[in-house]
């Protein structure tokens, strides 16, 4: 099966700092893939490279077989590759329903196509998804007044609203309370199974990512350290070393 996302030998440097060196990974349709690594290992940089937030120095990023490494962020997003942010980003002064409405695929059209109201399907879908993440009762509140964890859920719902083919999640559980984490994982799996969204997840919480992902890539110092099933990655001595340091 051909890969939905194929990252090949991507290198990205900032001045003299090499944030990603020759990184390659593949995400197949229907997968939940994980991306782990210690702080500063280049995970978010790789995300930014994939979605076009900055130009890459060399290598190639292919989405559905087409090269996207030269395209800009909104163009890539319109092809169905959506990311969420580590520092949760929602539209703070708008209420939850409005946040959802503007995330629907029909909001991505040309400005002239935006000069119309909201379709019923969009509103129904927005309700369903807000229900799905448990924010239905808060739907008329300003998104900025929600707690951090609720904002994470809203951002996730907005990402689903945009009907992505591939969703890149940057630390979806960071700063979320442990009880809510279980609910969030459950929703990630359901989004993958029921809505058919392929996921690539950056995660620091090992318990979460080992249970969630079917395939994991571990980065360290900007390079791929290990790739494989959760079991393989966990048992790889260099991964343990990267996280915990060299044993005496």
């Amino acid at each position: 099966m051909s890969a939905l996302l194929k990252v090949e030998n991507v290198t990205k440097t900032f001045g003299g700092v090499v944030a990603n060196r020759s990184v390659s990974l593949e995400v197949h349709k229907g997968d939940i893939a994980g991306l782990i690594g210690p702080n500063g290992s280049g995970k978010t940089t790789l995300f930014n490279s994939i979605v076009g937030a900055h130009p890459i120095d060399s290598g190639s990023v292919r989405f559905e077989g087409k090269e996207i490494s030269r395209l800009i962020v909104p163009t890539i997003a319109r092809r169905g590759l959506i990311r969420t942010f580590q520092q949760t980003r929602i539209y703070a002064e708008m209420n939850c329903v409005e946040n959802m409405r503007i995330s629907a695929p029909d909001a991505r059209g040309s400005v002239l196509s935006l000069l119309s109201g909201f379709s019923n399907q969009v509103d129904i879908r927005a309700e369903e998804l807000l229900d799905f993440v448990g924010l239905a009762s808060k739907r008329f509140l300003r998104a900025g007044s929600l707690s951090f964890g609720q904002q994470k859920l809203l951002e996730f719902a907005m990402a689903l609203m945009s009907e992505p083919k591939l969703l890149l999640l940057d630390e979806p559980t960071a700063g979320v309370n442990p009880t809510l984490i279980n609910g969030l994982i459950d929703r990630l799996v359901r989004a993958n199974k029921e809505l058919g969204v392929t996921l690539l997840v950056i995660e620091h919480n090992m318990r979460v990512i080992m249970n969630l992902a079917e395939h994991i890539t571990c980065l360290a110092h900007g390079e791929v350290l290990a790739q494989g099933s959760p079991q393989e990655v966990r048992d790889n001595p260099s991964v343990v070393e990267a996280y915990l340091g060299v044993s005496a």
Partner: peptide, 24 residues
């Protein structure tokens, strides 16, 4: 009151997010 109006507000609240969501 249209999608255009919400797009304006989205740009006001977080333009980077709006771009990442594919808005023109």
């Amino acid at each position: 009151a249209t999608k255009f109006g919400l797009a304006l507000n989205a740009i006001r609240d977080d333009e980077d997010k709006a771009e990442a969501m594919g808005l023109q």
